[in-house]
């Protein structure tokens, strides 16, 4: 994926912020499946993604993402 070895990975941030063990992370998971995915934690998750990957999302992108897969795509899109 070309991620710097000193940076956290997407899955590490999911585990840290949402408390989902790496082996249970799937792209189709959404706020319905993850108890810790509340509105405040979601904002913290977004801010952590932006910080770790040095990118900036728009409010629309943040509001439209429904699943972890959507967010992973968002990160990949912003890397380009």
């Amino acid at each position: 994926m070309g991620e710097n070895k000193y940076m956290k990975t997407f899955n590490q941030i999911v585990e840290e912020l949402f408390g989902v063990k790496e082996e249970n992370i799937k792209d189709e998971l959404s706020s319905k499946d993850i108890p810790n995915w509340d509105s405040m934690n979601y904002l913290l998750f977004i801010a952590e993604l932006e910080k770790e990957f040095s990118m900036s999302f728009s409010m629309d992108e943040v509001m439209n993402a429904q699943t972890l897969g959507d967010l992973r795509v968002l990160v990949e899109k912003n890397k380009k």
């Binding site: 904002l43 913290l44 977004i46 801010a47 932006e50 910080k51 999302f57 409010m59 943040v62």
Partner: peptide, 12 residues
């Protein structure tokens, strides 16, 4: 301040 998230208005 080491990071600003425009989308969430969160500062680190």
């Amino acid at each position: 301040v080491i990071f600003k998230s425009e989308a969430t208005k969160i500062l680190t």
